[in-house]
Amino acid sequence: MTDIMVEVSGLTRRFDVSSPWLNRLLQREPRRILTAVDDVSFSIARGSTYALVGESGSGKSTIAKLVLGLLKPTAGQVLVDGSDLSATATAASDALRRRVQMIFQDPYASLNPRWRVGDIISEPIEVFGLEPDAGARARRVAELLDQVGLAASDATKFPHQFSGGQRQRIGIARALASRPEFIVCDEPTSALDVSVQAQVLNLMRDLQSELGLTYLFISHDLSVVRYMADQVGVLYLGRLVETATRDALFEAPCHPYTRMLLDAAPRIDGFGREHQTDGGEIPDPINPPSGCHYHPRCALATERCRVEVPAVSNLEGRQVVCHEATQILSGSVDL
C-alpha cells in the first residue's frame, strides 16, 4: 500500500454562465451550465509528481483551484493527508493550509510589484507564525533565496528588477516558505523561454528530492510532463480519459485522444513530419457531445460511443475511459 498524500474522488464543478435573469426571461433563454470538471478521481502518492495534461477548456486549472480549496466542489471531495481543505475554517484546516502551497503560471502577475522580495517571501512565514522573531525570519528568507538559486542580497530588491525566470524562482521560494509538503504547480514554466524553463524544471526536481515534496503538476506541454511526472492524467472536456504511469503513457498511449495529442505535439527531431490530425477542435463545453465527449473526432467511434459514456477500464495498471480500450491495447484495431 503506497502512502497517499492527496485523494481526489468524484470531483465535479459546474459553473452557471447564464445571462442575467431578465435577459433570460425576455429572450426565452434557458440557463447555461458549464461543467468544468466532471467526476474526476485520482490519488497522488507522497513524494511523487502527478501531472494533469490537457488542452484549453479541459478543466486543468479548475481542478488546481478545487484541490487548493480556492473553489468549492459541486460534488465530490479532495482529501489532503486525510482531511478536507474545503471544509469550513478550523484550526485543523489552517494547519493543513500551511502544508499546501501553489506555484503560479505568470511570474509577472503573481508577485506584488510594490513589495520587496524579502517581504513577499517572509509573508507566509509571518502569517503562519513560523518564526516570530524578525531576525530569524530574515535568515530564513536568505536561506530560501539561496535554495532557489538567488542571492540573499536580492531580498531588498523589487520584482521588476528580475527576469521572468528569476521571478519564478521567487514564486517558488514563497511557496516553500511555509515548509509545505504538497505544492500545486499550474503551468509553472509556460511563460518562460526554453533555456530558462530548463533551469526552473531542474530546480523543481532538485527541491522535490531534497525536501520530499509532492507535486500536482499542471501543463499543456507533453514534453515537460514527460520530464516531470511519475503519474499522468489526461483530461478532455473536464473528464479524465486516461491515467497511467509516465512510461506506460508515453510508450504505449491507449486512449485515441492521448494518441492524437502525442502525435500532434511538435518534436524537435521530427524533420518534415506530416501530422495525421483528426481535423477537429475542442467542442463547446456548455453543450458537450453526448456519450464519450471525444466521439466526434475519434476514428474508432461507433454508435455506442455516441450514446453511452464509457466506464473506466483498468488495463495493465492504467485506467482508460474508452469503449474500445481493450481492442486498442491488444492491437486488434488500427488508428
Binding site: S163, V194, A198, L201, L222, R226, R267
Partner: peptide, 24 residues
C-alpha cells in the same frame, strides 16, 4: 544549449535538462 534545454521525447528522463545559465 537551446537544443539541449528543450525537453526531447527521445531523451533519458532520469538525467536533468541541460541548462544555459543566466538569461537573455
Amino acid at each position: 544549449g537551446l537544443m539541449a534545454s528543450t525537453p526531447n521525447p527521445a531523451s533519458d528522463v532520469a538525467e536533468g535538462l541541460v541548462q544555459i545559465p543566466g538569461a537573455m
